[in-house]
Amino acid sequence: MSLPIPRLFKNAYNSIWREWLIYHLADERYKFMFDKPPKNEWVVLDCETTGLSIAKDQIISIGAVKINGNTLMTSERLELLVKPDKEVSAESVKIHRLRELDVANGLDPEIAAAKLMQFIGSRPIVGYYLEFDVAMLHKVIWRMLGQGLPQEKIEVSSMYYEYKNNQRPINQRGQMIDLRFDTLMKDLGLPVREAHDAINDAVMTGMAFIKLRQLLGK
């Protein structure tokens, strides 16, 4: 049986690990990402890509919006087109409606990543199936920093699972829950924007995050 690690030791470990990461940061201009995050602030992130393969596909647009408390700061948002070095397939155009012509004058991936990191700062990052978006970004950011994004990551689908699971009788907890985004939004009674647009998806995810924080008492 493993014993719980005292908070004091956890804090010491986290502090040592943070200093190690800063020391090995390839570009010290991004040390600000390790600062103490502003209280009750987050950044919601969404990326559109040429496909669903982390190994083969690339980001073509980024949408991000800030949250302050229970307010979605739609006036403080970031919308970027990113130029890929591979052809945008007809299949992906059907999903996100971004043609090769649309992204031809997009930003270089490293410039886009730099703008995004400046926008996020040290705030926790919120997303829906965020692991995929972060993995796609890390393909670029690791080349720049020698490491990935250090900010806390918050998964909205996990919050929704926790909320729905808590509503069930104890003997039914842990069973499968429909985590599809349209199901989540409808169940939470939230307005839906046109999907597969990076900023629209970020705004909708932000609304879901705020509602779920309230429902979970977080």
Rank of each mutant, 00 (worst) to 15 (best):
M33D: 05
N68E: 15
D178T: 08
V156F: 09
D182Q: 11
Q147F: 08
N14W: 11
L81G: 07
I141E: 08
A104D: 08
H24F: 15
N171E: 14
V103G: 07
A135Q: 13
Y163E: 03
V134C: 03
I95F: 11
L190A: 07
M136G: 01
F32L: 03
L8M: 12
S75N: 14
Q172N: 05
V192Y: 00
F34A: 07
A64F: 04
D178F: 08
F34G: 06
D57V: 10
M185I: 15
D85M: 05
G189A: 06
K31N: 13
L8S: 13
P6I: 12
F209T: 04
E87A: 10
I154F: 07
G217A: 08
S53C: 08
L52V: 12
H96L: 09
D201C: 05
R123I: 03
Y23G: 00
F9N: 03
A104C: 05
E87D: 08
R18P: 03
Y23N: 09
L145T: 06
V65R: 00
L116W: 02
I67T: 04
V126I: 15
A55I: 10
V43E: 01
L216R: 14
N14L: 14
P4I: 10
G206D: 07
G189Y: 05
A104P: 00
I210F: 06
K56F: 12
L80S: 04
E152Y: 09
P150E: 12
N68A: 14
N40R: 12
S92I: 15
M204G: 02
D178I: 07
K211N: 04
L116Y: 04
K218C: 05
A198I: 02
N166I: 00
G121Y: 07
I5D: 02
A112M: 09
I141V: 14
E76D: 15
I67N: 04
I5G: 01
K186I: 03
R143M: 10
P38N: 06
G174Y: 09
K31M: 06
C47S: 07
G148R: 10
M185S: 01
L52K: 09
D57E: 11
A198P: 01
I120G: 01
S92L: 04
L25D: 03
Y161K: 07
S92T: 15
V140Y: 10
E79N: 12
R7H: 07
M73L: 14
M73E: 15
K10H: 09
I22C: 14
T183K: 09
N165H: 06
K186F: 03
D133A: 03
Q118S: 12
L3V: 13
P38I: 02
E87G: 00
A198S: 13
M1A: 14
E110K: 15
F209P: 00
D187M: 01
L52P: 01
V134T: 10
A208E: 06
Q58P: 00
I16A: 13
A195V: 03
Q175I: 13
L149D: 02
G51C: 07
D27H: 08
K139H: 09
G189E: 05
